[in-house]
Design a protein around this nucleic acid. Structure first.
Lengths: 124, 124
DNA sequence: AAAGTATTTAGTTAAATGCCTAATTTGTTA
DNA sequence: TAACAAATTAGGCATTTAACTAAATACTTT
């Protein structure tokens, strides 16, 4: 279960446009890893990409992107695994699923409390 | 539908411990509005509370809390309605439900793509 | 209308964030 | 082993954030 500080860390990570876009594209497979096209031996998931490939999609310097990735990893919403020279970034679906569940629970509990208080009718 | 910048605004709002706690307690009814106990004529939902009541739960000054609330309101995750002298803060369940839905969709799409790519088996 | 209550605005300050370039580390290839 | 490639660390700088106090605004009550 995600505790409060873990959640805050995730929100902080996603509350920046650059990190949000990285997160989005890592999850949806939006980054084609140009390095792997040259080197198809490396077996990675279709979502995997690496630091320099991500950086190609931004105007920012490589160290800046590297720092953003570190924050996404520390928030535990992506994983980073070193294979040889490169670091492969992949989405951490478990954390995102859990976070989604928190929102669902919050909404459900709210509805339930509202029904208990106001009776089983829509509030106006 | 929440666009990217609206989502980023929400994440930025929730990526601060004070605002996260305010949000949490506004949603779960964690703040008893001491003012309303003295003035029970005012009809508000069980979740409604007001700025000074929220501020009582923190060490921070009233203006600081006021500014945090402004940010939560601008992120559209709480509503603020003036009734006489006071401003009543309530959760905005619609926005939270929608955000939760985004996470659910993200996870579902991910699962689906994984199945399409790897076949209907768990990845190891 | 004067005093009181609730909240916001203004102006200041310290700390955090986000960016850069240069240098370093780690692993690969010629 | 020397050069190359991928990524991180270090150090510096500008902007933003989060806090404060004091002052202003907007209602309500006496």
């Amino acid at each position: 279960m995600l505790n409060m500080h873990q959640k805050i860390k995730i929100f902080k990570a996603l509350g920046n446009e650059t990190r949000f876009l990285i997160f989005k594209n890592v999850f949806t497979g939006g980054y084609t890893c140009s390095i792997d096209k040259k080197d198809p031996k490396v077996k990675v998931s279709p979502h995997a990409t690496c630091v320099s490939t991500i950086a190609e999609h931004f105007e920012f310097s490589l160290p800046t992107i590297s720092k953003h990735l570190k924050e996404l990893r520390e928030a535990n919403i992506v994983t980073m695994e070193k294979k040889g020279n490169k670091i492969y970034i992949e989405p951490n679906i478990e954390t995102v699923r859990e976070l989604g569940g928190c929102f669902t629970t919050l909404v459900e509990n709210f509805e339930e409390n509202r029904e208990l208080f106001f009776g089983d009718v829509a509030m106006s």
